[in-house]
Structure formats: structure tokens, C-alpha cells
Simulated scan of single mutants.
Amino acid sequence: MRILCVGEGSGHDDGRPYVGLSKAALEGSVSITMSGHAGVVETLRRSHYDIVVIQQATPDMKLLRHIRNSRVPTPVMIIVRDSTPSAVAELLSIGADDCVAASVEPVELLARLRAIVRRVSGHDSLTLHIGRMTVGVDRREVHVDSKLVPLTRREYDLVELLALRRTQVLSKETVLDSLYAGESEPYGKVIDVMICKIRKKMRNFGIDEPFTTLWGIGYRLNETAFAPLGARAGATENRTDQPAKESCIPVMSGINIMNASTTLNLV
């Protein structure tokens, strides 16, 4: 999960995530990029983030209004030290997806962050249903036709990431940030190798091409491959194009422009 954390810039946060957010990052694969108020909208437009976390001593509506008036769709959570029910209600009414106290327990905060990202991606439960495939986020398991797919921890993380972002093309940089947040980043071809291994495992379950590779751009989940067998057969008969051949040639990374000042990666 990639988080753009916006400090209040008043000295209360000392340019770092609040303690609860830092501890939540230690309990899950979370990459935190710290930023000041200036240039937040431009950063969100140029780089992919799963959620924005705005840290405030007391509720201030200006930045949230600016983000929403700019029609940036990224979900926003507000973390405040002191607040009132009416102030929280106003934050929610103008576009915040959640508002929590700075004293929130890390385990709850992490669960709230994941729930927001999941809902924004169009999933309303901890089990993601995509045709013949189910991804159990709570159990960290992938099943095809109710049969367990034997994935490694990293392979599962990649399938879950692409399932959550099933309508999006994810660059290699985004995938690396999400899977290896806070760790020494591996050599670039590791994602291509992982994709090939998952493809081979999925073929044992009758899934020929679980991912679509857009050369020079990134990867996307191929939902058509997981369609029920009858529906997929009908779609295949109507196709006029030829399926792409499998290849482990690495995808070239695109340009990743960051305006945030400091990056803090934690696991």
C-alpha cells in the first residue's frame, strides 16, 4: 500500500508520520511518502498512491477542499489530535473517506486504511471475487474453482495487488514499491520472473493468461481469463486477434515524477 502522508507543517508532527501510522506501517507492507501541503495535488496527479493521509492537530478543511475541488479521486483519511463530532462530520461531508484520532490503535488504523483502499477499488468484502478466482485478503489465499493455488508470499502479494487494481495498469515501479516497501529493492527483473512463475501455476488450473503485459508500461489483471468456462469459450470464438506470446522480457519502467520532499519506507 502506497501512502502519501501530508504533515501539518506546524511543528507538531516534526515532518514524520504520527506514532500510530508509523506502527501501522511496521505491521503491514506499507510505503509512506511524507509531503508538505504545497504541490500535493500535482504529486497525486503524477504518481500513483493508494490513499492520502492528512495529519492535523485540529481539523482544517482547506487542504481537503483543495484536493476535492481539483477532482483528484485518491481516497483521503484525516488523522487529528483534537476534534469535535461536528468537525469530523464536516470533514466527512466535504470528501474525507475517514477521520480518526491520533490515538487510534495501529491495528485498527491499518485495517481502516486497507478497508478504504478495498472499497475504492470496488470490493465490499475481504474476499475478492473475480470470475473463477477468489482472493481471500484475510487468509492471504488465492483459489480457482475453490482449489488453492500454491503461491509464495510475494506471489500472493502480487496477485492481490493486481486484483485490487483490476481496472488499472500498474507500472513496475508501483509494483516494486507495493511489494517491497521498506526493504532493499531487488533487481528490476524480479517482477517479470514472478509474473512468469504465477502464469505457469495458473495454467495448472486452466487459466492461460492471468495477466496482460503492456510493453513499456506495466501489468494489468486479465479478467477475461478468469471468466466461467462457458462464457470464456464464447468470447474466444468471437475474437479476431491473436493472443500475445508469453515472455519473461522485463517491462521497462516509466517516468515516475515525485514532488514529495521525503520518503519513509517501513514494514
Rank of each mutant, 00 (worst) to 15 (best):
G7E: 14
G11Y: 04
D14C: 11
D14Q: 14
G20V: 13
K23M: 12
S29Q: 07
V30F: 07
S35M: 13
G36P: 03
G36R: 09
V41W: 01
P59V: 15
D60I: 01
M61Q: 03
L63S: 05
R68Q: 13
P75F: 06
V80R: 08
E90V: 15
L92R: 02
S93Y: 04
A96D: 01
D97I: 13
C99Y: 03
V107G: 00
A111T: 12
L113T: 04
A115S: 10
I116Q: 01
G122H: 06
I130S: 04
G131N: 03
R132Y: 03
V135H: 00
V137K: 01
S146V: 00
L158M: 14
L158D: 01
T167S: 13
T167Q: 11
Q168C: 11
L170S: 10
K172C: 09
E173D: 14
T174W: 06
L176P: 07
D177I: 04
V190M: 05
D192P: 02
D192Q: 10
V193C: 06
M194D: 14
K200F: 05
F205L: 06
L214N: 02
I217D: 11
G218P: 03
T224H: 12
A227Y: 12
G230K: 09
A231P: 00
A235I: 00
R239V: 02
T240Y: 08
Q242I: 00
P243N: 12
C248T: 14
S253F: 00
G254K: 09
G254S: 09
N259D: 07
N265I: 00
N265Q: 14
